[in-house]
Simulated scan of single mutants.
Amino acid sequence: MAQFSQETSTTGAFVRQPNRFTARPEPEPGRYRLVVSLACPWAHRAVIVRKLLGLEDAISLAVVDPIRDEKGWRFAETDPVLGIDYLKQAYDNADPDYEGRVTVPALVDTTTKKVVTNDYPQITLDFSLRWRPESTLYPEHLRAEIDAWIEPIFHNVNNGVYKAGFATSQEAYEQAYTNLFTELDRIEAHLATHTYLVGEQLTEADIRLWTTLVRFDAVYHGHFKTNRNKLTEMPNLWAYAKRLYAQFGDTVNWDHIKRHYYVTHHDINPSGIVPAGPDPEVWTR
């Protein structure tokens, strides 16, 4: 857990670092490159929104290797557009004094080779608000309701699994565990009578929740000790997650997801053994 040591409070709680680069560039097709890890849920949401909004030709995509080393996220080969081997080089181009953890997703300016933004919550919103203002993923008439879901989902679910997994005290772990399953129970009850979180349509809130759900049984249940029950044991959430998988399950890379978590987090899994299961075919049955 060495990469996260600076994000642990005195009580043993995981406190995620703030995003350093928060510019909101104007749309310019071909200028920006989205750098992602297919293992990362924050980056995964950007991949999904980019795909759903038809931005694949406007914003190019670079995928880093799932195994992060001491220098951070690296490319399997020198990126042909940016000419860099590590994402850190684009961070250094933007701020040579930056000492925080290098994170994905990151939007990089292909002309300056500098990171423009690593503000993952805003990146996907800007894809809807600036690049595709006609998008139905974050429509104005539903925005307040979407935001009301996004906030607790971020704190208790998206970041909640990390708070449990990276806790260094029993108290911090149990608090994160309790908050996580309290929120999942609330969503489970909501989905008993709703197809989506907001209205009867897919929105930003669903995508943000889903990138955690799709990793839950494969990674978070065991690796992060969020093991009260599996996603497959929560019938409404499981049915909902499978419905969304049918829409953009082709963006999931199980190999990258499992190898990243189980090989990179040495303090949690010192053996580096990657579990064989669960069977990903369960998502299509």
Rank of each mutant, 00 (worst) to 15 (best):
P121A: 07
K114N: 10
L87D: 07
E99T: 13
R74F: 03
D85L: 05
G100D: 07
K88P: 00
V63M: 04
P105C: 12
D85P: 00
D97N: 12
P139V: 15
D95G: 04
T112R: 12
R74L: 06
P139E: 15
K71P: 00
H141C: 12
W73D: 11
D92T: 12
F75M: 05
A76Q: 09
P66C: 11
D95F: 02
D109G: 07
R101W: 01
A90V: 06
L107E: 04
F75N: 08
Y120W: 11
Y86F: 09
Q122D: 10
A90K: 07
D92G: 01
V102G: 04
L129M: 14
E99F: 02
D109L: 02
R101G: 01
F127R: 02
P133C: 14
A90L: 04
A90M: 03
L87M: 07
T136S: 15
E99K: 12
E99D: 10
G83R: 07
D119S: 14
R68I: 09
E134L: 05
D109M: 04
T124S: 12
Q122V: 13
I67W: 04
G100Y: 01
R130M: 14
T78F: 03
D79T: 09
I67V: 13
V64R: 07
Y86C: 08
Y91W: 00
E99A: 13
T111V: 09
A76L: 11
L142C: 09
V81I: 12
R101E: 00
V81M: 10
D97C: 01
Y86G: 11
P80L: 07
D119N: 15
I67R: 12
W73F: 06
R101A: 01
F127W: 10
T117G: 09
D65P: 02
D85A: 14
E140P: 00
W73G: 05
A76E: 12
P105H: 05
P139C: 15
D65G: 02
K114T: 13
Y98S: 05
D126N: 14
P80D: 14
A90R: 02
Y120C: 02
D79M: 06
A106L: 10
K71V: 01
V116L: 08
I67P: 02
S128A: 14
W131A: 11
V64L: 05
N93I: 04
I67H: 09
R101S: 03
K88Q: 10
I84C: 08
T124H: 08
Y98I: 01
N118T: 06
Y120T: 14
K71R: 13
L107Q: 04
A106T: 12
T112Y: 08
S128C: 15
K71T: 02
I123H: 06
V63Y: 03
A90E: 05
I84E: 00
K88M: 01
